[in-house]
Design a protein around this nucleic acid. Structure first.
Lengths: 341, 341
DNA sequence: CTGAAAGCGCTTACAG
DNA sequence: CTGAAAGCGCTTACAG
């Protein structure tokens, strides 16, 4: 059943059927009702690919994530999808599994006009390549970013958030503070390390090189292994800021397996504020990112770009919060980076 | 840049360019090389939507999940996506957020020919509707299913797995065994309850009605609340089989918050064997589903259906395993439903 | 308010 | 092995 069949049955032209579907206000009520009746009667479904082909719009966007199994991204994706649906867009999900090649592959969907725009939740491509691409196609970055990149980006200030997390430990009296790093080939890993260093320096605390555990991926296991190394030191740290909650939970497991207590022997701060952070024992103190909002914001900016609206700002910095729970032994209150606006 | 431009530059017809791209063996090596050179030189990208329109194939399938934030589904999705990519298909993800209406909405993608097939990881539609739909479009169910449905389905045997989980508690000497149910409007919730009842009955154990906690969703919070109700009973159970790991972790939290010990005061078994099951304290004994394999299998069957191959079986039952950890106090070994084949 | 006609960029049956 | 031509099912500028 195609549009011309419906047209025949309703004694109108295909053009009129098309208008009833896409611009009903252009058609008289009488004609419109007649056409709609036929459409309902035969349960006509327009061939959307034909429409996409004709209009050069797919009403579909691609969201590329580095790891679909991460609890962090699923929240961001919800924000993206809700906004997309409200605006009449569908979302295709691309999982790179942390591979730059796969990230590159997904760009073909743009080049081949299979999607109207792309949301990158991972940004490991070269800056120049990405900028060049963004001149021709609607692209928005979120969560991850590239320094000085001239492409709209939605994220939190990872450096200051990491500084805040580290300072929380310092303020509780810890002087031997360590950092379990994220991947150093990802900017978030470098930023959070930098924030850690800044906090230590501004409080005149030395950073023992062995207190910085690099290497490994973002997994539970990696957090476990790196914490084991810290515990094996002659003078282990008393406080540890961990790259993210997933690794922090691995680190907690290492501490407990070693017969030590959290926070009495080792205090731990995480990052991302996953749901699990308030399930593990003791509940994990963590930096919260407004995951859902980041998704929403990134999607709305992408739609603006698709509609060729001018974007004034290129960098959208969202608020983070330190959720203080029991893993550092601090009292229970919420500190925030919020500037009241 | 379109195909006819490339054709002109290479002094061939558009048909030849098309053949070079889709059926290179039909073109002489000389012509082929000439065309490929032009393609590379101008970096030509075919307009895929035009191809989809022309061939009536989108090479895209839709995977519908009830909850994208669930750690369980992301593993299944990986299995789906890896198989899809290997076979030249893309995957669109549809998140219903447990709403039947949203599940219904995604069916439009099929009706409108936007996807070649659909993988349902949730199945809350009416049986008749789904069967009717499956007559006209390639559809495969996975994880969830509908009793007696004549549509290919990949899952584990939830009833026997639930029985096995419950029997594990019984064999450890528990007589007051309770079940924290999943949602009763989902077949998995009903099946696991049934398995629980079967185990109790076949060991001549009474099931106190108050030991069956129904109601609530599949969340951590719901697991917490239902366990609190069990603990408030005059004679609380000593062992609890919980619908899934997420709820089980909520239930564990309730036990600990009440000052009781796991497994000494309350033993707990979960379901799904999430990664977090071996992170929480104590590590959670749980039924493992072969998530990745389920995804792989479901996707290969779907591709067979798309290719109009005959499917002999309609029901594909995968093996589950009981992973015994510390939350029941049993010793550490793996029991399996595996029939050596 | 409505219709006739062109055309989006490919693929493929047909002819040579 | 290659080309000319038709056609996939819509939308939209144009004319009336």
């Amino acid at each position: 059943m195609k549009m011309s069949d419906v047209a025949k049955m309703a004694n109108v032209s295909p053009a009129t059927v098309s208008r009833v579907l896409s611009n009903p206000e252009l058609v008289s009520k009488k004609t419109r009702d007649k056409v709609l009746e036929v459409i309902n009667q035969v349960n006509y479904q327009p061939h959307i690919v034909a429409r996409q082909f004709r209009t050069k719009e797919t009403k579909t966007i691609l969201a590329v994530v580095p790891d679909i199994t991460s609890a962090f991204f699923s929240e961001v994706l919800r924000g993206i999808e809700h906004t997309a649906i409200r605006e009449g867009y569908q979302v295709i999900l691309g999982d790179t599994e942390n591979s730059v090649e796969r990230e590159n592959d997904y760009i073909n969907l743009l080049l081949q006009k299979q999607v109207d725009g792309m949301l990158l939740l991972t940004a490991r491509l070269e800056k120049e390549k990405l900028e060049e691409l963004a001149e021709h196609f609607p692209i928005v970055l979120a969560c991850e970013y590239i320094d000085g990149l001239n492409v709209p980006t939605v994220s939190i200030d990872n450096i200051s958030a990491a500084r805040k997390a580290t300072e929380h430990l310092i303020k509780l009296g810890h002087e031997r503070v360590a950092h379990i790093c994220g991947p150093m080939n990802v900017i978030l890993g470098r930023d959070r390390l930098r924030g850690f260093r800044q906090a230590m320096m501004s409080h005149d605390l030395d950073v023992d090189p062995s207190y910085i555990q690099e290497g490994g991926n973002e997994s539970l296991e990696s957090g476990y292994n790196q914490m084991m190394k810290l515990l094996a030191l002659e003078t282990p740290p008393t406080g540890v800021f961990v790259y993210n909650d997933e690794m922090a939970m691995g680190a907690m497991k290492a501490v407990k397996n070693s017969g030590l207590r959290i926070p009495e022997d080792i205090a731990i701060v995480g990052f991302d504020n996953l749901k699990m952070a308030s399930v593990v024992e003791p509940h994990l103190t963590s930096i919260d990112q407004p995951k859902y909002k980041i998704g929403q914001k990134a999607m709305s900016i992408l739609i603006q770009k698709i509609n060729k609206e001018k974007i004034t700002k290129q960098s959208f910095v969202m608020k983070d919060h330190l959720f203080i729970r029991q893993s550092c032994g601090g009292q229970s209150f919420v500190s925030s980076s919020e500037q009241k606006t």
